[in-house]
Nucleic acid binder design. Structure first.
Lengths: 105, 105
DNA sequence: TTGACGTGAAACCATATGGTTGTATATAAT
DNA sequence: ATTATATACAACCATATGGTTTCACGTCAA
């Protein structure tokens, strides 16, 4: 798991990491709590969390011996911006369809 | 490059593939035309196109000896839907900020 | 103080990924 | 018919990715 090349797009490419984000959307959780939801070792989950951290999609705080992770959804803005560029390619189609339906009434 | 496991999330994880999507947003292009934009072989670009095809983000038609690719942006809807779930986590913050600014006026 | 608990980190492994070169095949153009 | 063009496909390669096991270390509870 190499250096500074984990951006948001790569971070959300993995289904496990997307599921982690959903979990953290519900509630802050420790690493152990998170890994209880997955059929893999705590170490594996920990690596996923590292990647999510690098992409700034999650943040963490130490509470005693536990490390608590929480969602930092603001970083999804980059994705939203990227998507926006492509919206014109199908939003128009939906509008045209809507107009067509209304005309048919 | 293995079987049916290329979904939209994985397809857009690669910067080259995102750039291909942008290019095709401007204009339909053949494989050769697309690969002219990248510092890699036509074969490499062709593999990226295959992955984008599997994710249904692009479609293609044969015109004589050329294979013309065009954008199929509708498949980005899945991404949009996924994002929507997380919007509540920061849209509210922006709204609060906006209200604060208005109150300050 | 002695464990038990929660995490970190290193070493290792199989497979995926992103790229290359080389060869084959179909379609135009001369 | 020959040649040039556009793509397809197979083989190969280095590195990344996603996972494991093992061990070390700080922290909390008895």
């Amino acid at each position: 798991m190499s250096a500074e090349k984990h951006d948001v797009f790569q971070a959300i490419a993995d289904p496990t990491r997307r599921e982690v984000l959903r979990l953290l959307g519900e509630k802050e959780l420790s690493i152990t709590q998170i890994s209880d939801h997955f059929p893999m070792t705590r170490t594996a989950v920990s690596k996923h969390l590292k990647i999510l951290s690098e992409a700034k999609l999650v943040k963490s705080e130490k509470h005693g011996r536990a490390k608590i992770y929480y969602l930092h959804a603001e970083s999804l803005q980059e994705l939203k911006d990227w998507l926006e560029y492509f919206e014109r390619f199908w939003e128009n189609k939906l509008l045209k369809l809507k107009h067509q339906v209304e005309k048919d009434d």
